Structures are given as C-alpha cells and as structure tokens.
Amino acid sequence: MDPKIVNKGDRNKIYLLIIVIAALIGTNAYLFFKDKQQNKRFVTVSTEKDKLRLEVEKIEVELDKANALNLNLNEKLIQSEKLAREKIAELKIALQKGQMTQEQLDKAYAQINELKSFVKNYNDQIIQLQKDNLFLKNSRDSLANAVKNISNKASNLEDENSNLNVKVKAASALKLQNAEIIAFRTKSSGRKVEVTKSSTAEKLSVRFNIIPNELANKAHHNIYLRVFDPAGNLIADEENRFEADGQEMQFSHSIYINYNNDESTYVIDWKNPNPFIKGIYTVILYTDGSTMGKAQIDLR
C-alpha cells in the first residue's frame, strides 16, 4: 500500500480537529467581545449611578432647605416628608450595590422622578403655609405666639451669629509662616551691619511671611510686637496697650502692614531702649486681637 495515501478514518479526524479549533476560536472571540461589551456596560452603569446619587442629594438638599424655615407643619406634611426621607434612604442603599441591571436603573430613575414631583408639591405647600402664617400674624392670638417665636429665633440667631463670627475670625486670622530675627548696628555711613554679640547690637530686625489666607481681610493690619529679654521681662512702655486673646496687654512696638495675600516679606525694626544683654530674646507678634506667632534670637 502507498504510504502517501491517507486512510479515510485519519482524514475524518483531521477534519474534526479543524472544526474543533475553529469552534474554539469563535468561542474565544465571542467571549472577548462579550467581556468588552460588559466592561463598557459596567462603566455606563457606574456613570448612571453617579448621576442618580447626585439627583438624590439634590432632592435631600431641597427638603433640608424647607426644614430650615422652621415652620409648624401639619401632620400630613410631616408624614409625607417622612416617607420621602425613607425612599431617599432606600435609594442610597440601592446605589451602594456593586452593580445594577438596566431594570433596576430604570426603577431608580422612576422613583427619583416621583421624588422630584413630591418635592415640588411639598415646596409649594410650604410657600402657601408661609403665606398663611403671615396672614395669621395679623390676629391678636397669633401675634402673641409669633412674638414669642420671633424672640426665641432671634436669641438663637444671635447665638449662631456669635459662634459664626468667632469661627470666621479664627479662620481669617493672620498667622506667621516663618519668621527670623537678626541683630544689627548702624555704621556712621548709615549702612546696617548684622551682629551676633549683645555688646554691639543696637536694634532687632524681625523678618516674616504670613501664611496665605483667602479669608483674611486684604487691607491695613496693625502689627504689635512684645519683646522679652533673656530674663523673661517684657520691654514696653506702660502707656503702650492693646487687646489680644481676650486680655489687655502692653506692647513694645507696633506698625501697619498692607496685607494682600501675595506672600510678601515684612520687616519690623525695633530699637531696644535698654542695653542688650547676653541670652535669648523672644519676640511675639499679634494682630487683629490674636497671636500671629513668635521668633527668637540668641545674642552672645
């Protein structure tokens, strides 16, 4: 028998192997494109979930705004709001799940549209309630209650404003970013010469930068210096007084600076009315009723 002749059984096996390989290639291609479509679908669903979360937050903010009016709501409005809050909570939980089907997304959109309609109707009723309350204030009995409520609200508002002012003042305060002190003397020519010995020092020069602060008032600020000698004694005149950190203090020197939140470097020169002594001098800076920071220099 001729060896070049392939028997029929072997030929069938070859055909079957070709079919199997083609099927595997087709399956892999199908799975690749399916996985690609699923990934694309997952990204789309994730984007839709982010949009839904934003819509839910907007609805919740609208409800919070209505509550901030502190109106006396009737039982029906209270229950309606309660149901809306519960639905919002359910939506938040649903949106925290890893994946959502298109059907679940559609259902969430439908629920959000219902909530939007509810919030619009709810706000309309709140506005009408405000008008009704305004009308009732014209009557004697309602006027007495209104005065009492207004008095309480005014007191609470005053406390809130007071607390807010404290926070704003603290947030807008000027603070030192860095500060250094050098001692110097002035030659007969007028040129300043830096020194390190107490015996030759005539003045201290404080150089400092302020931490950038968008909330700070861009204007003139009075800077107060309190200088302490190595023994801890404040060097200041009795009549030089200011208030900071809730108490009256004496200051050694003061100047005005023009603050523009532009990272400027400021320099304050201070002349000691007494001879300098060996040791560490401490300078503390204040402005707008609060401490900015401090710096020190050690004179030999």
Rank of each mutant, 00 (worst) to 15 (best):
D2L: 10
V6N: 01
A29N: 10
A29Y: 13
L31N: 14
Q38I: 12
T44Q: 13
V45P: 06
T47Y: 11
D50F: 07
E57P: 00
E62W: 05
L73T: 02
E75I: 11
L77F: 03
K82W: 06
A84L: 05
E86G: 07
L105W: 05
A108R: 08
L134Q: 13
R140W: 15
R140Q: 11
R140Y: 12
A144L: 14
V147E: 14
N149S: 09
E158C: 02
E158D: 14
D159L: 15
E160W: 04
I182G: 02
K187M: 11
S188F: 12
T196G: 15
T196C: 00
A201W: 06
S205Q: 13
R207I: 02
R207P: 00
I211V: 12
H221W: 03
Y224H: 10
R226V: 04
R226M: 12
L234D: 04
E238W: 07
G246L: 04
E248Y: 05
F251Q: 03
S252R: 08
S254A: 12
S254F: 05
E263K: 14
S264A: 15
K271H: 05
I284Q: 12
L285F: 05
G289T: 04
G293D: 05
Q296L: 06
I297Q: 11
D298N: 14
R300W: 08
